[in-house]
Write a protein that binds this DNA or RNA. Sequence first.
DNA 1: GTCTATAGTGCGATAGAC
DNA 2: GTCTATCGCACTATAGAC
Lengths: 190, 190
Amino acid sequence: MARWQPGTRERLQATALQLFATQGYDQTTVAEIAATAEVTERTFFRHFADKREVLFAGQDDFLGMFTGPIQAAPADARPFELVRLALDAAGAFFPEERRPWSRARQGIIDANPALGERELGKLQSLKVRLGEVLRERGVDEPAATIAAETAVTVFHLSFAQWIAAGEDRPFGAIASERLAALTAFVHPGR
Amino acid sequence: MARWQPGTRERLQATALQLFATQGYDQTTVAEIAATAEVTERTFFRHFADKREVLFAGQDDFLGMFTGPIQAAPADARPFELVRLALDAAGAFFPEERRPWSRARQGIIDANPALGERELGKLQSLKVRLGEVLRERGVDEPAATIAAETAVTVFHLSFAQWIAAGEDRPFGAIASERLAALTAFVHPGR
DNA sequence: GTCTATAGTGCGATAGAC
DNA sequence: GTCTATCGCACTATAGAC
């Protein structure tokens, strides 16, 4: 018999999400998460750099989903088109089944400023990575950074709306609407 | 004779900045900052909610500088013009004399992810507040949020460039350039 | 102004996989 | 033998409670 169970990381994440949802983030200690998942506190911190990270780890595949279509696009595509492609691809990452889970997770994040800050940090990483990808494609500065920032901002606003109470449109429809709103803002009346 | 010296808050901030710059943020304890400023640790936490906040407190006047021109603008101004006004006003907040100090402070922030997250949180607060101001002026959603996010993003990118090594143009010139880059990104070839 | 809970680190020991 | 995941324990600093 193995000394320890497999899937420790995933078990810790599921346990933490459950405890945060029922008791609140601040009211849940790392010791409690670890004990419930039947490991020691020290093991928790070997998997996650800090307590917040247990809610954010494992989204690396999303990053590829966002940047992949850009790298695969025709060489003559304009930055704005690249951003549209990335947003379209992001939609596939948020199917209807995922909406209730995303709402629950966001409820935890919104209830705690420290978690909100970590979320912003993750989005910042995405912006930086996207900027690199665009520059690799030959987009110059400051256009690459402007495009990357804009893309992630529109994504973020679209995601926030997607999980808003009462919203039932698919992610892609919301993202298109937000992108159109950006266009109208920059050049009204066209 | 006074029981305590005036300007404790400012003394703590100056002390902290100095210690962070020379020893690094992590290597400087709150106890050390407090001792150098000749107060107790408890006093530090009465002035600042947490250790990071000592670097960010006291920027409330900046918020007004950003939103003030928007509230004072003609009623028929378009959102994009409001954003341009806010950015122009922000330039006055960053005169040449301030550039070396801003560079030093940013150096500390960039060296520590936790400080970077707090900075993003502050920018987020600015976005939220700006969105409120725009809605008060009758700008509808999602235009108000899009405009607020865009304004703060352009401000942030401009500020980053303003303190970049070798950059010597004034803030206003950089902000104008970045705003033009945004326009070109959304509608290339115009 | 003191006391305490919690987050987070450093390091040596241990058990199993390869 | 090496590698990796875990444990166990001592320790510090932050931050909040009393």
